[in-house]
Amino acid sequence: MTTLVGAAVTPRSGARDARSQDNAVAVSVIVPVSERADDLVGLYREFAAPLAAMGRAFELVFALEPWHRSHAKAVTELAAQGAPVRALVAGQALGESSLLRAAITHCRGGIVVTLPAYRRVEAACLPVLVDRIAAGADLVVATRSPRRDPWFNRLQAQVFHVLLRSATGTRFHDLGCGVQAVRREVLEQLPLHGDFLRFLPILATRHGYRVEEIAAQQHASDRGSRVYGPGTYLRRLIDVLGLYFLVRFTEKPLRFFGLVGSAVSLTGAALLLLLLIQRLQGKGLADRPLLLLAVLLVVLGVQATALGLVGEIIVHFSALHRRSYRLTPAALVPPAES
């Protein structure tokens, strides 16, 4: 687990101490501050107001990259004035997902809300998110609707979500928003490695949790045009591929690799057969570059299939340890003995 240093509280005070100090907090809002960051004090004032009006105890936890130390100072000054804010600073660059993951252990609320460090939605949607959780949902994700972006941004977002929906079989409309509320127990049950935190609603759906989507008013300052570098698009594409595999083939890798492998191998074998027939008709083999392609295809196909078999070995041997299903314990009959 990555360590974040609490700048407001004592350094490296364990997460559990922090939790036991204050059981009164119901809602923890985590703000990972990575690349883009608005003015945090302004952000706090804007988003704290509706939360305070809600009447539940809350805290805003800013998780900062090392180079945002200066922001941390502003936050601690706010805290000194009595505002329910904390600043946690990472020792090394972590990225948004890991910042969030590390901050979860430090926050105290039973409901965790994730909020980007830049304004995506109007603050008024936060109480709605929390209310849905209180009403029984396990995870509620905000969707910017209606979108008021330039056509190009709307298009790229749509393409991404169409891919994502067909890859995972879920139907979410705006995972780029990053504003979501989730029950703490749920968060602790889900595998949060890598960049998958962004796709928390998909993971939660897969684990059988009740996931809802609500429409939120897009923030006025979010309506600019955004064109990302090629690296970002590539990363998103790889994410979709990773999720596709995770959702469909985690327990059966050979079905994926075997299918791809045998298709490639059979193509190669067909070419080899063709070459053989032509050889029998008297056409020499030694000056047929097609032979190289045929052998290459067979080799690649065997490689893919063999990799799938290794995957199956891993799955088979880890199956004894893995809890591959989740119960809804409350519905057990007779009730579970504790």
Binding site: R206, G208, Y325, R326, L332
Partner: peptide, 9 residues
């Protein structure tokens, strides 16, 4: 006895 799974597995 009833064992309720969280989704269709």
């Amino acid at each position: 006895r009833m064992i309720p799974l969280a989704r269709n597995y």
